[in-house]
Design a protein around this nucleic acid. Structure first.
Length: 181
DNA sequence: GGAACGATCTGC
DNA sequence: CAGATCGTTCCC
């Protein structure tokens, strides 16, 4: 049994590339499923690789909403990926959760993953494993009602692995990918 | 109105 | 390494 508290909304107040490394080590929880965040990427509206770069649209509206809420999108017409919004309202910044390390609810994850054992080592995979869907866009990860971010006292790694983001074609030089070391 | 392109994953 | 698969975006 893990003793953990919900993170405070203030954790998401800063710029995405500053918030992102702070999320490493936090716990993602949805129902019985819990995983420790080990890889994230930052996206901002000043960033050509970001969905928010060309301004607010129906799809990315949640990115311009309050910090600590989810922005989920469909990738390649197939996979759901989940971000946590950061910064002020209308800022259009968020942190993509790329990978977590399974902690609890492994059986439920395996079931949703079709019996596979690679459960949460990719942004699409972890959403499938956790049952995160497009319908979760806009939900608050700090209010304890659904998908939550928890802190069990584990500090973020002091020297995370920093590097370029994955799968993008623009702003490829920006070192906004962070991985637990 | 149409075409091109993904913040990915899987199977060949 | 290429196909899946479809919503969003951008261009005509």
């Amino acid at each position: 049994m893990v003793s953990a508290v919900r993170v405070d909304r203030s954790l998401f107040a800063g710029d995405a590339h500053l918030v992102a490394p702070l999320l490493l080590g936090k716990l993602l929880q949805h129902g019985e499923c819990v995983g420790r965040i080990v890889e994230v990427e930052a996206y901002a509206s000043t960033d050509p690789a970001s969905h928010s770069f060309r301004g607010r649209t129906d799809r990315n509206a949640a990115m311009f909403g309050p910090a600590g809420h989810l922005y989920c999108y469909l990738s390649y017409g197939i996979h759901v990926c989940a971000n946590v919004v950061t910064g002020p309202v209308d800022d259009g910044a968020a942190v993509l959760i790329r990978a977590v390390e399974p902690v609890a609810g492994l059986e439920a994850m395996r079931l949703r993953r079709g019996g596979r054992n690679d459960l949460t080592d990719g942004p699409g995979k972890l959403c499938q494993a956790f049952g995160i869907t497009l319908a979760h866009t806009g939900t608050d990860v700090t209010d304890g009602s659904g998908i939550c971010l928890l802190d069990d006292g584990t500090a973020p790694p002091p020297h995370p692995i920093v590097g370029p983001r994955v799968g993008i074609t623009r702003a490829v030089d920006l070192p906004w990918r962070f991985r637990s070391s």
